[in-house]
Structure formats: structure tokens, C-alpha cells
């Protein structure tokens, strides 16, 4: 979030100072963000704080009222149990890291590649764009769960395309690839964001570069990528955050099996909270996840100073 560099083009320094001064306004700032801030204070903050508090309690969710204090503080017990005495906890950590490491980069690369391919005015591109987006909007109903299962069956589409005979759901070494493949298959949302980002790049830049004799790859590396970095950064951050929180596919398609190889973290949180009713423990797990995601996000933000280029912040067009 570096805002130190202000427009340093043809604008005079006097105007620059005025601009900086003009840009700073607590009143206007808070006025513009007030919808979010009010919503946050009213609706988001309390549940977040409640879950933080509950993570230090033995709160049993079934039939016990939070407001009436049907719980006791247990200090760091939940965290101790999680780290040292929960056999499945580390399995879920391992599964989640496995998933994030493969699903996030593969999905982003695929999304960017397809967005580039579809960012043209060729005939039929409308159709292709719709076709490539469809797997991403099928949702999570029973019919859809059945559909995904069918596709990964032994005589299903995936084995047919790959020419393999793998039991995708039953083989502990492959089950995670079902979830990773689904994540890549449903690349629609980062793809659309990339497309919108590509659209925002002024065409005259390409024209100018073409006149200067730049070829496709030069234009790609010198114009497309730099100007797309804010969007790449956004997608990277969001896909990482969402990757750690992937729930639906694991819940409806693999159910954590076999041997807990697909027991993604939120699935285990749900299981602890709503099957074992140990909402205190589940909250503790959730907060460990929050800290982990926050850590990775911070690293991404720190690195962004090195590689993300904001036209609006630098003003060098």
C-alpha cells in the first residue's frame, strides 16, 4: 500500500503538493468507507470476537447458549490438544497444504492462459468464454456432487482422457488430485478477473508499441504483465485465502476420504463443530487458520512492493 510516490510527470511541484493535500481527508475517507465500517461493526465484529473468545473455552454447541455463559474458560487447552494430541489435526494440515500448494498456482496459471486466449475478437469467442465459464457456476447441489463423482469414476471422463484406470476416490495417492483438478476446472472466477484486467489495459499502448516494432512477446512482457500486476496480485491473494478455506468440494465430493488424505482444514473444523459439537475446539482451529492465512497474506503484500505496478500510484504513463 505504498502511496509515497505521487504523480511526477509534467505536473508542477506546487500542484503536486496541492494534490497530496487534497488527497488526504479523514472525513471523506471515512465517509466513503462508512458502509463497510458500519456493517463490520454491526454484523462482522461480534461473531469474530465471539469465536476468538470461544477458542479459549470448552463450549459445546449443542443446546448450550453462548449468551447464558454455558461454557468455561480452559486457557490454552484447545491449542495444546490440537498441536500435541490430535491425530487427525495434522493430517488435515497436511492435506490443506498439499491442496493449496498445487491448486492455487495451477488454477491461476490456467486462468491467465485461458484469459489471454479468450481476450480476442475472433468469431465464436463469446461462445468459448461461456463454455469455459460454465464449470465454475454449477454450484454444490446433490446433482452436481453426483456429476463430479461420475466424471472421476473408473470409467468416467477423466480416466478416458488420460487413458488411465485410476480409482480416483479410493486411491490415497490420487484422491487429492480430484480436488485439485476440480479447482483447476473451476477456474472461471480468476479468469474473469483477468479478462476484466486485460480489458482495462489501454489499447493505444499496444498500438504505440507495435509502431515501435515490438513483437507479441515483447508486448506481453513489457505491457500486459506489468499493467496486469495489480490484478495478478489480487487473484493471488484471493486464491490463497480461498484455497485455505476450500470446503464445498471436499464436503460434497470426497468427504475427507480416504485415510483423511482430502480432509481439508475447514472440513475438519466443521466436523469438530457440528458433528462432535466441540465449537470451542473448532473455533481454536479456525483461529489458527486465520493466523496462518494472515501470515501468508502479509508475505504476499510485502512482496508486492517489489513486483506490483500501480499506474494510479506512480502516474508514469
Amino acid at each position: 500500500m505504498s502511496n509515497s510516490a505521487l504523480p511526477a510527470t509534467l505536473v508542477g511541484s506546487k500542484r503536486r503538493v496541492r494534490a497530496r493535500h487534497w488527497r488526504h481527508s479523514n472525513l471523506a475517507g471515512y465517509l466513503f468507507i462508512s458502509p463497510w465500517l458500519i456493517g463490520y461493526l454491526l454484523f462482522a465484529l461480534m461473531p469474530i470476537l465471539a469465536s476468538l473468545m470461544l477458542s479459549f473455552t470448552n463450549y459445546d454447541v449443542l443446546g448450550h447458549n453462548i449468551l447464558r455463559g454455558d461454557w468455561d474458560f480452559v486457557g490454552l487447552d484447545n491449542f495444546e490438544k490440537m498441536f500435541y494430541h490430535d491425530y487427525r489435526y495434522w493430517k488435515s494440515v497436511k492435506a490443506t497444504l498439499n491442496y493449496v500448494v498445487f491448486a492455487v498456482p495451477l488454477r491461476l496459471m490456467f486462468a491467465l492462459a485461458v484469459a489471454m486466449l479468450l481476450n480476442t475478437k475472433r468469431h465464436g469467442v463469446y461462445f468459448y468464454r461461456a463454455a469455459y465459464y460454465t464449470p465454475s457456476v454449477v454450484g454444490g447441489s446433490v446433482a452436481v456432487a453426483l456429476m463430479w463423482r461420475e466424471i472421476f469414476q473408473r470409467d468416467g471422463l477423466v480416466n478416458n482422457i488420460l487413458g488411465t484406470e485410476i480409482y480416483w476416490f479410493g486411491n490415497p495417492d490420487y484422491a487429492m488430485w480430484v480436488l485439485v483438478t476440480l479447482a483447476v476446472w473451476q477456474f472461471g472466477s480468476p479468469m474473469l478477473v483477468f479478462l476484466a484486467g486485460l480489458r482495462q489495459i489501454p489499447q493505444d499502448m499496444y498500438e504505440a508499441a507495435s509502431i515501435d516494432g515490438a513483437n507479441f512477446f515483447q508486448r506481453f512482457w513489457r505491457i500486459t504483465i506489468p499493467l496486469l500486476t495489480p490484478i495478478i496480485f489480487f487473484n493471488l491473494v484471493m486464491q490463497t485465502i480461498n484455497g485455505f478455506q476450500q470446503f464445498t468440494q471436499a464436503f460434497i465430493v470426497t468427504g475427507g476420504r480416504p485415510l483423511d488424505r482430502t480432509l481439508l482444514y475447514p472440513l475438519y473444523v466443521y466436523n469438530r463443530g457440528f458433528v462432535s459439537f466441540q465449537m470451542g475446539y473448532a473455533s481454536a482451529m479456525a483461529w489458527v487458520l486465520l493466523v496462518t492465512i494472515a501470515f501468508f497474506t502479509l508475505i504476499l503484500f510485502a512482496s508486492s512492493r517489489l513486483w506490483v505496478y500501480y499506474q494510479g500510484d506512480e502516474g508514469k504513463s
Partner: peptide, 30 residues
């Protein structure tokens, strides 16, 4: 717009996405 507390607000906003829904459901319902 530049305003004091912006970074904190932004961080808080991002953090709302980092807590799994599964543990927020019950407090939210209450």
C-alpha cells in the same frame, strides 16, 4: 483517499475473509 487508520481498516477488512464460516455461523445466528 488518504486518511489515518486506513491500513488498519484495510487489514481488518481482509481478515474477515480469513476466518472459516463454520465457526462464525452460530454467533452470527445468535
Amino acid at each position: 483517499i488518504e486518511f489515518s487508520g486506513k491500513r488498519i481498516c484495510f487489514a481488518l477488512m481482509l481478515s474477515t475473509m480469513m476466518l472459516p464460516d463454520q465457526v462464525r455461523m452460530i454467533p452470527q445466528y445468535i
